[in-house]
């Protein structure tokens, strides 16, 4: 008997036709009887359709991150100069948030492990045949991450004096760790360009980098 939690957890894989027969049948029976989970699955289907229809370049809207924007634009605590910087940071942050969300969806879907289709355990020993990383899109996605990272680093450079020395040290130490990981992953990918698992790890690591830079910029604007 498939539960609501299970149906929602596997909705994405079900829509991709990546489930074993047993899981698929359980989820389909559940969806037939559960309007709420059916609505959830419809929502996931719409999101995936929207993600696949996205243009290569997306111009972020000013209001993508309203809470941050509101904070940095708070008039009681900002000078005119700060406001200009805050607007720029708000736009950069918004762009990064949008980029990370979209790129994560695209990369995850291109690199996800291929599931067995012939029953439990069928994948064992067969090698988890993965979608090749050479599929179009990975290079562009990583280039987008690099661009967002550079923009956030630039915004942070303007504001690093506003962070405590201890926090700045934590941020810089961990950015170095992430940068080292990215270099290692890129070297490994150069040796194995078709390894989608490495691409997935690289995308996740870029995600950590963007997230840390975003957090650091946020802290510097407090």
């Amino acid at each position: 008997m498939t539960t609501c939690d299970e149906a929602r957890r596997w909705a994405d894989d079900w829509l991709d036709g990546q489930l074993s027969d047993a899981l698929r049948e359980g989820i389909e029976a559940h969806l037939a009887a559960c309007p709420a989970c059916r609505a959830h699955a419809d929502g996931v289907r719409s999101l995936l359709a929207a993600a696949s229809a996205l243009p290569r370049e997306v111009q972020p809207e000013r209001d993508l991150w309203p809470a941050i924007a509101a904070r940095v634009a708070s008039p009681a605590r900002r000078t005119r100069r700060d406001l200009g910087s805050a607007r720029r940071w708000g736009a950069v942050a918004a762009a990064a948030v949008l980029l990370v969300g979209l790129t994560a969806i695209i990369v995850a879907r291109r690199a996800r492990p291929e599931a067995e289709t012939t029953g439990v355990g069928a994948r064992s020993g067969a090698g988890a045949a993965a979608v090749p990383a050479s599929l179009p899109g990975f290079g562009e996605a990583f280039a987008e991450y690099e661009r967002a990272g550079q923009a956030l680093r630039s915004a942070l450079a303007d504001r690093r004096g506003q962070m405590s020395a201890a926090t700045l040290r934590e941020v810089e130490d961990n950015l170095r760790i992430i940068d080292g990981a990215i270099v290692s992953l890129r070297m490994a990918l150069a040796q194995n360009p078709d390894c989608s698992e490495l691409s997935t790890l690289l995308a996740a690591t870029y995600g950590h980098q963007i997230d840390l830079l975003r957090t650091a910029n946020q802290l510097a604007s407090m």
């Binding site: 047993a22 899981l23 492990p113 439990v120 355990g121 994948r123 064992s124 020993g125 067969a126 090698g127 988890a128 990981a181 290692s184 992953l185 490994a188 040796q191 194995n192 390894c195 698992e197 490495l198 997935t200 790890l201």
Partner: peptide, 28 residues
């Protein structure tokens, strides 16, 4: 070894009814 040429390693197996799924990925 997951590749004849690269240094990658993989371990794929099932236990029990195999209904749960575990994915672990690392670089080094």
């Amino acid at each position: 070894r997951s590749s004849k040429y690269g240094p990658g390693y993989e371990l794929l197996f099932a236990r029990g009814d195999g209904s749960a799924r575990v994915f672990i990925k690392t670089l080094s």
